[in-house]
């Protein structure tokens, strides 16, 4: 609350050109602090076992070794795990968006007792964790002959993320003034066309965020694939990770190396898509 002409104001004016860079520095610090556990995971995968549990923790690997990485690639078909993970998560994302779009749009536009009840139900069905749901689900999948297929895992995982997608997309649609669509319809544009040409583009921020989060949720799912599929060569990465968590002990450098390799492609993918994602998330995208 400095008055015009005060000393503080002068300093502020002098610093003004620096401000963006100071903010960037702050952002880097925030990200660094926040990502510290991730850093810890990566350096731990580069440490040999005794150093990993040293009484005085080492901030960087004093004797870095790639042994864990060599070991996991020698032992496991890492590529196949990643491929299975990719197939499952992309399919889940696609299926979720298809199912969620219609439902979210309808629930945003129609307000009756029944749609309200639907929203309550959709919110509430998310509460039980997969271990408690998977047994009865297995019964269903066996009835329709889907046990031991990735399709069953895709369907099961979709149930976990679909409610989230409906609720968030519904919020996005609800924020788009219905007058925009109506104006288009007055011009003779059918609702269908109005939806795809006006509503959907306006909801793109919601879509970008929801699909990223759905993808990541599906990418990490463990209980469904383990419970619904028996064959190792169908399994995604999180199940592979457990190969290193033995019955009696966990080989942590190996497990962490695997986890690092497991998340790396997603980070790379993010780097590539970053520009697109950013443009969707820029303030004031909706004008």
């Amino acid at each position: 609350m400095s008055r015009p002409g005060s000393a503080g104001d002068g300093v502020r004016r002098a610093l003004a050109p620096l401000r963006p860079w100071l903010l960037t520095a702050g952002g880097v610090v925030i990200a660094a602090v926040y990502l510290f556990p991730v850093y810890w995971m990566v350096i731990s995968s580069l440490k040999a076992n005794p150093e990993l549990f040293a009484a005085t923790p080492t901030l960087y690997p004093h004797a870095p070794t790639l042994a864990a990485f060599r070991w996991i690639f020698a032992r496991e078909n890492v590529g196949l795990y990643l491929q299975n993970s990719a197939i499952i998560s992309f399919s889940v994302t696609a299926l979720t968006l298809v199912l969620a779009t219609g439902a979210a749009y309808a629930l945003a536009r129609i307000r009756t007792f029944w749609t309200a009840a639907m929203v309550v139900a959709i919110m509430a069905v998310q509460v039980l964790p997969p271990p408690l749901l998977v047994t009865p689900m297995f019964v269903i999948f066996r009835q329709i002959g889907l046990v031991n297929t990735q399709f069953a895992v895709i369907l099961a995982t979709t149930t976990k993320v679909l409610p989230f997608a409906i609720i968030m997309l519904r919020t996005s649609f609800a924020q788009i003034p219905v007058e925009l669509e109506e104006a288009a319809r007055v011009d003779g544009c059918p609702r269908f066309v109005a939806f795809f040409h006006i509503t959907l583009p306006l909801a793109r921020t919601g879509y970008i965020v929801v699909s990223s989060l759905v993808f990541l949720l599906a990418y990490g799912e463990f209980v469904y694939p383990l419970s619904l599929m028996n064959h190792k060569d169908l399994q995604p990465g999180p199940v592979g990770l457990y190969s290193f968590i033995g019955a009696d002990f966990a080989d942590w450098p190996d497990a962490l190396a695997f986890a690092t390799v497991f998340v790396a492609p997603v980070i790379v993918l993010y780097m590539f898509l970053q520009r697109r994602i950013v443009s969707g998330l820029t303030a004031g995208a909706l004008k």
């Binding site: 903010l23 960037t24 952002g27 880097v28 925030i30 990200a31 926040y34 990502l35 556990p37 991730v38 995971m41 990223s212 989060l213 990541l216 990418y219 990490g220 463990f222 990465g237 999180p238 990770l241 457990y242 968590i245 497990a255 962490l256 986890a259 497991f262 998340v263 997603v266 980070i267 993010y270 970053q274 994602i277 950013v278 998330l281 820029t282």
Partner: peptide
């Protein structure tokens, strides 16, 4: 780099809960 840094924070969310 504001958007980039924001995206980076999301990395924590990608790791399997076991890890």
């Amino acid at each position: 780099a504001s958007s980039f840094l924001r995206g980076l924070v999301l990395v924590g969310w990608m790791l399997p809960p076991l890890v």
